[in-house]
Design a protein around this nucleic acid. Structure first.
Length: 390
RNA sequence: GGGUAGGUACCGAAGUGGCCAAACGGGGCAGACUGUAAAUCUGCUGGCUUUACGCCUUCGAUGGUUCGAAUCCAUCCCUGCCCA
């Protein structure tokens, strides 16, 4: 096992806040594997890079010899974490939760190691609790304490309703920490309150208190807003190698360094070393590393080669492109529409008129022009869509 | 339950009888420039077509008034705020 200071150096990279550094150091000094808790809500079926920030941190702990305790919130997700929400969220059905949990694990293992891992469902203990126990547990947290949470306070002020069960959520999350005897709990910065409740409850139970390690929110492709599905600025972990690679290449340089730190735990020295080279090289390496993480190294190399051919060398002659069957004689408009990727004929018309469509290297200008596409010709629509005529 | 302000395109927000497919901003898409980056500039951004100031659908819902309605009237649904 690495020395405490080496571990600290690695673990603190990218962390937004740790409560407290001293506690963490003390725990590490015991030189026995720590139990690192990460609770996840199986509410959304697909993970994106934003979700993997905490997973990557958890993996770091695993690599240092600590035990990852992944809590699947099958029970808590029936409530829905109110964190960051301005409205009560609709509960999920049992079946949906279990199906999501399965998908979640499959995807999480692209980042996590199977070694030194425990996966538990919190229904194991919450499902058995009696109402009396629930009341006893609830009595440990005061309402005014609960109302200190920013999202509750704001909702209260804004006059939107807060349902009673939502205030129970932090208590349940805290109780999870007690049940798994967590040494460290990971979470986004918005999880501060919930994780601190865990510390309180552990203290009440006579346990050593967990360290709260908060990780920053990952910015999405646009570089400003948080990565989220609804904003469409995300990279999903199940996306194809070329999509992951291409999307990663489209981010700004500033964002690239953030991703290096948050997703790959790079140190300041490593970053400044990368900054000495060409930024595009650094970005390609990042993109390649991402593909490797979610697929494999062979596919990552392939994605990079394809990308370089398609874009850097602008040579698509040998690249692997989706095939498109076209009639011997067809108008430019119909050819573009036959890809099925363009929403309306009006949009296709606009693309052509604005010079966004090329066939065999020739820009098309007239939507009505009659074309005779040959087998092997490449159709390029906009920046990202490529087809080879079959 | 009472009062009050509202519901407009992906989002925000103008428009209060014809010049409204609906200003403006954001977002998105495309082009130029680049490192297919960012920033910047330009264009586009409901659908269809024979691309025309043509047709169709749209301004919470349904009916109505009118030659003509996002705009006026009626009923209904939903949301915020204040009071109880």
């Amino acid at each position: 096992m690495k020395s405490v200071s080496e571990q600290i150096d690695l673990l603190l990279r990218g962390a937004a806040q740790v409560i407290s550094n001293e506690d963490l150091k003390k725990k590490l000094s015991k030189n026995i594997p720590l139990r690192i808790k990460l609770g996840v809500d199986p509410t959304a079926p697909d993970l994106h890079l934003g979700h993997t920030v905490a997973l990557a941190k958890l993996r770091q702990f695993q690599d240092l010899g600590h035990t990852a305790v992944l809590i699947i919130g099958d029970f808590t997700s029936m409530i829905g974490d109110p964190t960051g929400r301005s409205t009560t969220r609709p509960p999920l059905s049992r079946e949906a939760i279990l199906a999501n949990a399965k998908t979640y694990q499959d995807q999480a293992f692209k980042v996590l190691s199977h070694d030194r891992l425990e996966v538990v469902f919190n229904g194991e203990w919450f499902g058995k609790m009696s109402f009396a126990e629930v009341i006893r547990l609830s009595s440990r947290v005061s309402i005014s304490q609960m109302m200190q949470r920013r999202d509750f306070k704001e909702r209260l002020q804004a006059g939107t309703d807060i349902r009673h069960h939502e205030t129970v959520y932090p208590i349940m999350q805290g109780w999870d920490s007690v049940m798994v005897r967590a040494d460290v709990e990971l979470g986004g910065t918005d999880q501060l309150f919930n994780i601190l409740v865990g510390r309180d409850l552990q203290k009440d139970e006579g346990q050593e208190q967990q360290v709260a390690m908060l990780l920053p929110i990952l910015e999405g492709l646009d570089g400003t807003q948080k990565m989220s599905k609804s904003l469409g600025n995300y990279i999903g972990v199940t996306e194809t190698p070329s999509d992951i690679f291409g999307k990663a290449m489209s981010i700004s340089d500033d964002l690239m360094w953030r991703w290096y730190i948050l997703l790959f735990g790079k140190s300041e020295q490593e970053i400044s070393q990368l900054k000495n080279g060409h930024p595009m090289e650094a970005k390609k390496s990042l993109a390649q590393a991402l593909v490797e993480r979610f697929h494999d190294s062979e596919k990552a190399r392939q994605a990079r080669t394809d990308f370089e051919q398609k874009f850097s060398k602008r040579d698509v002659s040998s690249a692997d492109l989706p095939a498109l069957t076209a009639a011997a004689s067809i108008t430019a408009l119909d050819l573009v529409m036959s890809t099925g990727k363009i929403a309306s004929r009006g949009e296709a018309r606009r693309l052509i008129q604005q010079g966004g469509v090329e066939l065999a290297g020739q820009k098309l200008a007239d939507p009505q022009a009659s074309l005779t596409p040959k087998t092997g010709d490449v159709l390029k629509i906009g920046k990202k869509l490529f087809y080879r005529i079959a």
